[in-house]
Amino acid sequence: MKYAARRILALFITMILVSFLAFAAFHIISGDPARAILGMNATEKQLELMRHELGLDKPFIVQYFSWLLGFFSGNLGISYSYRQPVASLIMPKLKVTLVMVLISFAIIVVFSLPLGLRAAQKSESRFDWIRTSINQLCMAVPAFFLSILVSYVFGIILKFFTPGDFPKMDKNLMGALRYLFFAAVCIAIPRIAMAVRMLKSTLIEEMEKDYVRTAISRGNDRVEVLKKHVLKNSLVPTITFLGQTMAEIVGGSIVVEQVFGIPGMGRFLVASISNRDYPVVEALVVILAFWVILSGTVADLINQKIDPRLKLGGRA
């Protein structure tokens, strides 16, 4: 329990760290939000006015703390590019990305677990190399290349969905889900291949361990041994992997959203970075951080339940 509390505290510390890094990043990269808003021909006077209006004329630290203060009082600020509260702007985008990521995650779990188990079981087969090669190939195909292919084949040719016409979620949920499904598949395929490979090698490795060999040679049922020991011991790396997957598919969604034209968080993040819309980027970065760290934390917590040896940092 204490461990869990520490992890949650760590989560908050990291989120603050990330928000500070993002703030600092904006200070370093070139570009000026006032100029982004006012355009090429703006005069210095106009720019000053705008900077004042946005509070950008204050020292960096002051800006950061006023943002942090706002954040803790539940105020994410006003977007520079849209003059709208950040919270209401990003909510619909978050929903879209979250749904896509969850679909993708579900696909990964549903396909990789059985495929991985089977691959491990059949690893002695003469045709194992075919399986392995197909798997490797799936990993080698870039996700956005896959996205282009899928939107052409399923969108333009087969017309399962209309690329470029993402239905609004609250109006046409099924249409939106169908659209997201194809994008989710593109994110999922390389990850499935990775998961299968990881599962296979973990399982095989576990099966070759002495205790398993001994157990089997003693006449215990192979399947029983597999279920009782091998699977349990393979669970830790699997859960770590799934935690990472959960975090990484959010990152992977950025490019896929671009190709499919899905109005999600990744696309919005990229656009907001290029528009120098600090409040939106700050909010998205913190949410992203929350998601990434949460996935890792949950995976660690589960792992620690399964295998208490992993109680890291407990000695400090």
């Binding site: 399962f160 109006k171 099924m174 169908r178």
Partner: peptide, 25 residues
């Protein structure tokens, strides 16, 4: 799954009747 989703989409389109975008899908 894709076909299922496609089917469902059709259903909603007929139900809500907002032809414009759904028909496109």
């Amino acid at each position: 799954v894709a076909a299922l989703l496609a089917g469902c989409g059709k259903g909603t389109a007929q139900n809500t009747g907002t032809a414009g975008t759904q028909a496109a899908a």
